[in-house]
Amino acid sequence: MYQVLTPSRSSTLALRHLNYHVRHWGPEHSDLPTLVLLHGWMDVSASYQFTVDALRQPRRIIAPDWRGFGLTTGAPVDHYVFADYLADLDLLLDHYAPGEAIDLVGHSMGGNVAMMYGGVRPERVRKLVNLEGFGLPATRPAQAPTRYAQWIDEIKQLHQGTKELKTYDSADGVARRLMKTNPRLSEDKAQWLAQHWARPNTQGQWEILGDPAHKITSAQLYRADEALAIYERITAPVLAIEASGDSLGQWWNGRYTLDEYHQRLTHVRTCSTAVVQDAGHMLHHDQPEQVAQLIEAFLDAA
């Protein structure tokens, strides 16, 4: 199994009727800005372990498990709203980094949160790294009636028990699932991630640490014009890192492309891009050394 170089510590914060689990690496105090790592959809904070191990300079690092993921707990819900991640992050920073302009890294959904937060609270972010947080295809108002109907139908399906997540007989089964989803993931990393990505239930089956309600489609359309207005308010320098494997092309089949994503990035005042070679969407698993080097060079640059 993968051997951790920089062990993490855990804390739990009562926040917005939740018990928020936060993972910590490095010293409790540092002369460097606090580095905050935001994980993606159906992922957990421990996902950054390989990247943290590849960082060369010790720094204070914190990473929350988003609501409905990992070890963060609270009352059951039947859907999630994106804006809640922004409020959660703001309150987490008020507690763990009060008054500080932090360095912010987000992957996938976490990258989208980071970009939105950078424009909503620009004074709280010193530098921002977006790992494949592409946003979503633009929508039209005419799609709203169908979207609301879809949301209602999926809420019903959840309460009927038809949106449950698959369980596994063992941690090894979870690891095999991770490797099937990401063929670049080595077995030692998969076995380690499985211990943090899932846990056994009372019947001995391993359950993914993600709420099935996250599978409910958002009732709200993705408004690209709103996202761009927020991008324009980001004052922190941004580094947008993408993998050499075209995730957008695989997901959207031409409905949303890398060219369109790059065009959106022109609305950010100061933005550079980088590509991680021989990597897919989980680039921080595939090539943590490359990702760590890019992050560190960007954060440490004058």
Rank of each mutant, 00 (worst) to 15 (best):
residue 221 L to E: 01
residue 205 Q to G: 01
residue 199 R to K: 13
residue 232 E to F: 03
residue 199 R to A: 15
residue 221 L to A: 03
residue 249 G to T: 12
residue 207 E to Y: 04
residue 248 L to Q: 00
residue 255 R to F: 09
residue 234 I to K: 01
residue 247 S to A: 15
residue 242 E to M: 13
residue 200 P to T: 06
residue 254 G to R: 06
residue 190 A to F: 11
residue 253 N to A: 14
residue 246 D to V: 14
residue 203 Q to N: 14
residue 227 A to V: 08
residue 226 E to Y: 12
residue 241 I to M: 10
residue 257 T to G: 11
residue 227 A to Y: 03
residue 254 G to P: 06
residue 235 T to L: 06
residue 237 P to W: 12
residue 227 A to K: 05
residue 245 G to D: 14
residue 248 L to P: 08
residue 214 H to D: 02
residue 194 A to I: 04
residue 237 P to E: 10
residue 235 T to D: 13
residue 221 L to P: 00
residue 198 A to F: 05
residue 188 D to V: 03
residue 207 E to K: 06
residue 206 W to G: 07
residue 222 Y to I: 02
residue 205 Q to D: 09
residue 209 L to Q: 13
residue 203 Q to H: 10
residue 208 I to N: 00
residue 204 G to K: 01
residue 220 Q to V: 09
residue 211 D to S: 10
residue 237 P to I: 14
residue 229 A to K: 11
residue 240 A to H: 11
residue 189 K to H: 13
residue 216 I to P: 03
residue 215 K to R: 15
residue 251 W to D: 07
residue 234 I to V: 15
residue 195 Q to T: 09
residue 193 L to K: 08
residue 256 Y to K: 05
residue 243 A to Y: 04
residue 194 A to C: 06
residue 200 P to M: 07
residue 209 L to A: 03
residue 218 S to T: 08
residue 209 L to W: 07
residue 194 A to S: 12
residue 221 L to S: 03
residue 212 P to H: 11
residue 229 A to M: 08
residue 211 D to K: 08
residue 197 W to R: 08
